[in-house]
Amino acid sequence: MAKAAIKAMDATRVHPLAGQSFGGPNVSIAPAPEAYRCSLRADARAVPSLSKALGIKLPRSAKQSITAADRSALWLGPDEWLIIDTHVDPLDDLSKVRVLHSAVDISHRNTALLVKGPRAADVINAGCPQDLSLAAFPVGACSRTILGKIEVVLLRTDVDAFRVEVWRSFSAYAFELLSTAASHN
C-alpha cells in the first residue's frame, strides 16, 4: 500500500467516553480534552533534574500537585508522579534527562472526567471515602483513591472543580456512577 494511503488514515484519538456528558443544575460531568500522560518514577535525588527538564517543580509531599500552563505534576507516591500535559508530550522533555528515573507513556491508559459545580465534592463523595472539604483537600490537592468499586486519581482544579483520572475501561463505570449520583443529589 502506498504510504500516502497510510497517511490518510485517521490517527485522531478516540476518547472512550466520546460524546457523553452530564449537565445538571449543580454539577456537570464531561470528558476531559485529550492529553499526554506520563508515569514518572524516581528517587528524591533525581527530583531537581527532572523538575528542570519538565519545567515544573515536582511536588515532594503527599496530596500535592503543581500546575503551570498546560502541564500538571501530581504526587501519587513517594517516588511516583503523574504528569499530564494537554499539548506537549512530557516524554520528549524527559528523554534527554540523564539522572536515574523511569518514564512510561500512559497517555492512553488513563482518561479523565471533569466534574464541576457547587455540588461536585458531594457527588464524588457518593463513592469516594476521602474528606473532600477545602480544609482537607484544597485546590491543587490530588490523590489516588477509591470511587465506588474502582480506583481513580482525583485532582481538585478549583474550589468546585475536580479532574477524575481513571483507567479507560473503568471510565464508563466512573461516568455512570458520577452522573447517577449527580442526578440523585
Binding site: 508515569s39 518514577r41 517516588d79 536515574l100 523511569s102 512510561v104 507513556d105 500512559i106 497517555s107 492512553h108 491508559r109 488513563n110 483507567w167 479507560r168 475501561s169
Partner: peptide, 11 residues
C-alpha cells in the same frame, strides 16, 4: 533500581 508501571490499558 527498577520501577513497575501498569500499561495494561495503554496498549
Amino acid at each position: 533500581k527498577v520501577w513497575l508501571t501498569s500499561t495494561s490499558e495503554q496498549w
